[in-house]
């Protein structure tokens, strides 16, 4: 899972030469073998490294504040979203939905690595949401649809159909 993500991220960043990855441990943590130094371990660490390599550091945030917000949502992705239980999924959707109420992207007004990795991590959840649930978590659904149409992001993942017209008029559930 993480390896597919990293390979999609490489393409998204326009990196021409694909890197070699392996995984370690029960949780299959990705490892990047590096010719010039020690191996790098962990999805966020490797993804941030790739962004630097592609000289696209704006994707990590344009100011110290924005960089901190990006880091926070990257951490949220790997500590809260990954391997979460079914009950926890609802909590996460609720939190993200509230947070995204007045935001276009996770770190405010510009697209960052946090959007890409959150999109990769939440795809299987949004994919399985019923239409009513997509309506309930409207802000998450809107953000998700926006990111899946963002140039060069989707790659290995199937598009999720989001009905932009409300199928169910409100109040008839």
């Amino acid at each position: 899972m993480a390896l597919k993500e990293l390979s999609s991220l490489e393409k998204c960043l326009g990196l021409k030469k694909p890197n070699k990855y392996s995984t370690q441990g029960e949780r299959k943590v990705p490892v990047l073998q590096n010719n010039n130094g020690p191996a790098l371990v962990g999805l966020v660490t490797i993804a941030s490294h790739l962004v630097h390599e592609a000289k696209r550091t704006e994707l990590l945030g344009n100011s110290a504040e924005q960089r901190a917000v990006v880091q926070q949502w990257l951490e949220y992705r790997i500590t809260r979203l990954d391997n979460c239980s079914k009950e926890e999924v609802k909590v996460i959707l609720k939190e993200l939905n509230q947070y995204l109420e007045d935001k276009v992207y996770l770190a405010g007004n510009s697209f960052t690595l946090a959007d890409t990795l959150m999109y990769y991590g939440i795809h299987h959840i949004i994919m399985n949401l019923a239409v009513q649930e997509k309506e309930k978590f409207l802000n998450v659904t809107r953000w998700f649809d926006h990111i899946q149409h963002y140039p060069g992001v989707r790659h290995h993942l199937a598009p999720v159909v989001v009905l932009r017209n409300r199928v169910y008029p409100s109040g008839q559930h």
Binding site: L40, T45, A64, E65, A68, V69, E75
Partner: peptide, 25 residues
């Protein structure tokens, strides 16, 4: 900011100490 680690990283960045691959890992 509600992640203690992101808060710490931010404080260090404010005084000019930017994140490194080593530290991130």
């Amino acid at each position: 900011l509600f992640s203690p680690n992101a808060i710490c990283q931010y404080l260090f960045e404010v005084v000019g100490k930017e994140a490194s691959d080593d530290g991130n890992q």
